[in-house]
């Protein structure tokens, strides 16, 4: 049986107390929320923190504040996010993303904050210690070489969060709290295109809130590509959000990509789409723009060239769904369920 290494366990009751513990313990302490990302990593000895600081009993981490926008506590489980009243109607892209993370059981455990801070993934890294030893380890942990591209100066592990691209497209930001106070950052700015140092979150900061702007007149969607209907991380995530004028043309739009880089990111397709109607030609051009930004590497499931090849088509699905096309049959074939 795979086992966790020994560690010390702290279970603070407030954000302030958790922040104090993090500061006091330094880099040996790691936050644990749902544990669905951290614990497998610890069992595989990718991480071996001396102290686990649990957020499960921290007050306020499951807050839901409804106003013009919506504020979601970072400690809400993905199942709780999915079940949040009105979320599916107002932020369908987030609902679709959260609904497709892992499995039903894991969504009862994994949190929104945890999904946003998900460790980057790589088929040379997400392996047992014995396996990684057999390749002489890799740049991300215990080694020097990035085996994905041996000439690479940086780690090419993949951002594999589903919620981040969906939330980036929705224009969300996150609140980070530490002993030094709190700050809000646009979600896109939480990420860095570096498989090792993939978050701009400072050590000691806790992601406490996800702040969603007003969604009136906005519509959103998330398309996830993966092998199976459950379990799998994305090998591509396309999130699109658009504000529609009464005449059906787009006032404002954002298209974000996940799982094709070390960070989730906004593409420039949003600017292109502004002021246009979603004709087949416009969709095709936007999809081409999006696809040109996708740089998948050979470190996830599926053939890497194929992954690159289907980005445009998947982007098209997202935009066609926003146009109002009936995409249920395509969803059923790809996601194995209608969403």
């Amino acid at each position: 049986m795979m086992r966790l290494p020994w560690f010390r366990f702290e279970s603070p009751r407030s954000v302030a107390e958790a922040a104090r513990i993090l500061e006091g313990e330094g880099p040996g302490a790691v936050l644990i929320a749902g544990g669905t990302d951290l614990l497998p990593n610890m069992k595989r000895r990718q991480q071996a923190p001396q102290v686990l600081v649990s957020l499960s009993r921290v007050e306020g981490m499951k807050a839901v504040e409804d106003g013009a926008g919506l504020t979601l506590g970072g400690g809400l489980t993905l199942a709780e996010v999915i079940g949040t009243a009105g979320l599916r109607a107002r932020y369908p892209g987030l609902w679709q993303a959260a609904s497709q993370v892992a499995t039903a059981q894991l969504r009862n455990m994994g949190t929104l904050g945890g999904n946003l801070c998900l460790d980057t993934r790589c088929s040379y890294y997400d392996q047992n210690h014995e396996w990684r030893k057999a390749i002489g380890f890799c740049m991300k942990r215990d080694g020097e070489t990035c085996w994905v591209a041996t000439a690479s100066k940086r780690c090419l592990a993949v951002s594999s969060t589903d919620c981040a691209p969906a939330l980036i497209a929705l224009g969300a930001s996150v609140r980070l709290e530490s002993t030094a106070g709190e700050r809000d950052v646009a979600l896109a700015d939480l990420y860095r295109n570096d498989g090792i140092d993939y978050l701009t979150r400072r050590p000691g900061e806790i992601l406490t809130r996800v702040l969603l702007p007003d969604a009136a007149e906005w519509t959103s969607t998330y398309w996830k590509l993966r092998r199976r209907g459950s379990f799998d991380f994305p090998v591509l995530g396309v999130a699109a959000a658009a504000k529609l004028a009464p005449d059906g043309s787009i006032t404002e739009a954002r298209v974000a990509l996940g799982a094709v880089s070390s960070h989730p990111f906004l593409t420039r397709a949003g600017e292109f789409l502004a002021g246009k109607r979603l004709t087949d030609e416009v969709i095709a051009e936007a999809a081409r723009m999006v696809a040109s930004r996708a740089k998948p590497m050979d470190n996830t499931d599926f053939d890497v060239y194929w992954r690159k090849e289907v980005v445009a088509e998947f982007t098209g699905y997202a935009l066609r769904e926003r146009r109002g096309d009936d995409m249920d049959a395509v969803r059923l074939r790809t996601a194995r369920r209608t969403l």
């Binding site: 366990f9 749902g34 499960s56």
Partner: peptide, 26 residues
């Protein structure tokens, strides 16, 4: 033991969770 198969599912406060990724201390 990595949350990849579901064999260890139990109910905690009525919800199915994977017991391999739940710290007993919690």
């Amino acid at each position: 033991e990595l949350g990849e198969c579901g064999a260890c599912a139990v109910l905690v406060d009525g919800l199915p969770l994977l017991s391999c990724l739940v710290l007993a201390v919690e």
